[in-house]
Computed example of a mutant assay.
Amino acid sequence: MAPMRNTPSCNHNAFQTTSDESQSQAVKIGLEQNRGAEMNSDLERALAKLRFDEQVLGYSLMTKAGRPFVSFSFPNELFPRVRDSINLYKTDLRLMTIDTDRGLVVLSPVDLNWILTVLYVPELQLGLAIAKTKNVLRLLEGIELPPPPEEFEESAESNLKVLESIAMQAASTSSEMPSPQPIVTEPIISVEPTPPPIQEVVVRPPEAFNVQPSTVPKRGPAYAAALTLDSDLYKEMKQMHRNFGFDVLMLVDGSLSVAQVADSMFQPNERVIDLLKWAASKNIVGVPLCEESIVVSEATMGRFVKCPKFIGDLSKIDGRDVEILRLCDGTKTTEEIAEMAGVQNSKVIQIIARNKKYGIKMIGKTI
């Protein structure tokens, strides 16, 4: 009889385990790459709101030590002053502003590692600059930014990719695949899902809304979409109202009245009201609906306007601004002042905004 040979048997279970581990590792790597790419995309989208804002001269995402990590058109000569302010208030740094010769700088911490610094045009109102900055901060606060590397090239656009790789590495070291748990088979009970109730969308024209100077507009369901640069709603608003629509919506927070918004922007109430009526028809803001009695009374009330009045010392005013401010007596609108001085209305608004700190108040009247 021939001797029996011991033939080694294949361990199919070992092969299966190795294959499962390889697949799990591949899935893990894919998830890490997706997290890093999504973080980078969200960060670029948030910073794009500043880059394409015509009232923003430059910005910089800085480290908590005051080093510029990613910058766009931010003047290098302003970095030392910003860094000094960060070091001075580093124990209790909050949103703060810095007046410079180049414009208004607004800086605020994003988290424990990052600080956003934005340079706005000089004629922009302080409240509007702060509102614009807060809007971008809300987007940044929703992004899990990793801490900056110890060594990096300052103000380089390529640092966004560096941040993406750091996020991917942090995800790979912090996330561990859980050990496989025994699968318990339970009977599957088929439950027919209850369909959600059908909500009727009511489309109303702008004329259907009653917006007065005392009206306090609130943010509507389409508010976020209207401020998203790549949305159709934003493109429509940009085409119809240019940057004015964006600026007004930035001040809509449920606490400011129409008159306060118009006053802070040195714009007539009627222009703000027209914009808000359009926004209400698109569900961007919430304002009261018209009633027939209100419409009738509104027609007999006349038009409410704001007239600038200079109450300061003209000797402190330089150049051509004196001629414009001398006409600001509280009885003429900015359009009337522009016509008398032979300049554009936007020029009058800029001069008033530039010299508001010397003593200008707005007088309301009905014409």
Rank of each mutant, 00 (worst) to 15 (best):
N6F: 02
S9D: 09
C10W: 14
N11C: 11
A14I: 05
Q16V: 10
T18C: 14
T18K: 15
T18A: 15
D20N: 04
S22P: 01
S24H: 12
A26N: 02
A26P: 01
L31W: 08
E32Y: 09
Q33Y: 12
Q33W: 13
N34Q: 13
R35Y: 12
G36Q: 02
A37S: 08
E38D: 11
E38G: 05
E38N: 09
M39S: 12
S41A: 13
E44D: 08
A46H: 00
R51E: 15
L57D: 09
M62G: 01
R67F: 13
V70I: 15
S71M: 05
S71Y: 05
S73G: 04
E77F: 04
F79K: 12
R83Y: 02
D84Y: 02
I86P: 09
Y89I: 11
K90D: 01
M96I: 01
T100K: 04
G103N: 03
G103Y: 00
L104W: 05
L107Y: 14
N113Q: 08
L119R: 04
V121L: 05
P122V: 02
G127N: 04
G127I: 02
L128P: 00
K134S: 11
N135P: 00
N135L: 03
R138S: 12
L140R: 00
L145A: 07
F152S: 12
L163H: 06
S165R: 08
I166T: 13
M168F: 00
A170C: 06
S172L: 10
S172P: 01
Q181L: 07
P182M: 05
P187Q: 07
P187A: 10
I189V: 07
S190L: 07
E192V: 05
P193D: 08
P195R: 03
P197G: 06
Q199E: 10
E200L: 09
E200D: 06
V201C: 10
Q212M: 14
V216I: 15
A222S: 09
Y223G: 06
A224V: 12
A226N: 08
L227W: 01
L229P: 00
M240Y: 06
N243S: 09
G245I: 13
L249F: 00
D253M: 07
S257T: 15
V261L: 02
S264V: 04
M265Y: 01
Q267E: 10
P268E: 15
N269V: 09
E270T: 10
R271H: 11
D274T: 14
I284P: 01
L289M: 09
C290Y: 04
I294M: 11
I294K: 12
V296A: 14
V296G: 07
E298F: 00
A299M: 13
A299N: 10
A299Y: 07
R303L: 09
V305C: 02
C307G: 10
C307T: 15
F310P: 12
I311E: 05
G312T: 07
D313K: 01
L314Q: 01
S315A: 12
V322A: 02
I324L: 09
L325Q: 00
D329Q: 01
T333D: 05
E335F: 13
I337P: 06
I337M: 03
Q344F: 13
N345I: 11
N345T: 14
K347F: 15
K347S: 13
K347V: 12
I349R: 03
I351H: 08
K356A: 10
M362L: 15
I363C: 05
K365N: 05
